[in-house]
């Protein structure tokens, strides 16, 4: 993998917590940042990045790569991402298996792609080009989704596995997203995680969702829900000691509350990996 190794338990670092992070850096083993906020020309985020990266490993996690878009690769975007990668020397970069841009219009949303063999080939070719260009491993994250397409002929887990195996890239497994999509599309989350190629899953995400009338919304504004903790417990059995990131993007709680939730993840991990005598 990349230049700098990463393990343990981290959070998605948001501006509201910059101060808390500098006061309590040992609360986390590493942090994840939203790549795009650090790909602008300047500003506070830029200035703070080098300081953060001095203290802990930083993983850039993007939302606008739009690898599933039928558009060409956005080379300006990729150039900026590469500059970010060079600046912080991360073990990998991640983004989502989705589309969010069409004919240069950004939808600012993570839209699912139809799961077909030809779309898998198309995306894996793009993933290979992108990973080669960035010169750092690329992790693709499963998204939460609210629709499935009439065109789809493959399960989401077969589709994702096919892409990463063909492109020789990796998976960021968002446990919350598996639970959300499992409910919305009527599949068993366990079927999803057990079908993934073990050696390709390099990171976990944990987050909270919101239950609506007849679907679940991936809201990132809530504490991690019980079904997500349960699936995380199961997932540890398959993917062992891969690093975990707790994500929160709305109604962000105080630092201590977030770190307390991260401690729960550590406890679940410790219990799940302690052999019973």
């Amino acid at each position: 993998m990349g230049n700098r190794s990463v393990s343990g338990f981290g959070i998605g670092l948001r501006p509201i917590h910059y101060g808390d992070f500098f006061n309590n850096p040992s609360d986390v083993d590493f942090v994840e940042i939203i790549s795009e906020n650090f790909m602008l020309d300047g500003g506070r985020a830029h200035a703070i990045l080098a300081e953060v990266a001095e203290i802990v490993p930083v993983i850039p996690h993007g939302v606008s790569l739009s690898i599933g878009s039928s558009d060409d690769i956005d080379w300006d975007y990729l150039n900026r991402l590469k500059r970010l990668v060079r600046a912080i020397n991360p073990p990998w970069v991640s983004d989502h298996l989705c589309w969010s841009r069409h004919h240069d219009l950004y939808m600012h949303n993570l839209l699912p792609v139809p799961q077909t063999p030809d779309v898998a080939v198309f995306i894996s070719e793009k993933a290979r080009i992108i990973q080669d260009y960035l010169e750092v491993p690329l992790l693709l994250e499963n998204v939460s989704s609210y629709v499935t397409y009439t065109d789809s002929t493959m399960t989401e887990w077969d589709f994702l596995s096919e892409i990463v195996s063909t492109a020789n890239c990796y998976i960021l497994l968002d446990i919350n997203n598996v639970v959300v999509s499992g409910y919305n599309h009527g599949f068993n989350p366990i079927d999803y995680i057990t079908a993934l190629p073990r050696d390709r899953v390099k990171q976990h995400h944990l987050a909270g969702y919101r239950v609506k009338d007849n679907f679940i919304l991936d809201s990132h504004d809530n504490a991690v829900s019980d079904p997500v903790w349960e699936l995380y417990r199961e997932s540890i059995q398959f993917f062992d000691s891969i690093p975990v990131v707790l994500e929160r993007d709305d109604s962000i709680p105080p630092w201590n509350e977030l770190i307390h939730e991260l401690t729960l993840a550590k406890k679940i991990y410790a219990n799940a990996t302690t052999p019973i005598n």
Binding site: S70, T116, D118, F122, I129, D151
Partner: peptide, 14 residues
């Protein structure tokens, strides 16, 4: 750049 499947373009247009 690989060629996108026609149905993917149509879906994203729609």
């Amino acid at each position: 750049m690989p060629t996108p499947p026609r149905r993917l373009i149509d879906l994203q247009n729609w």
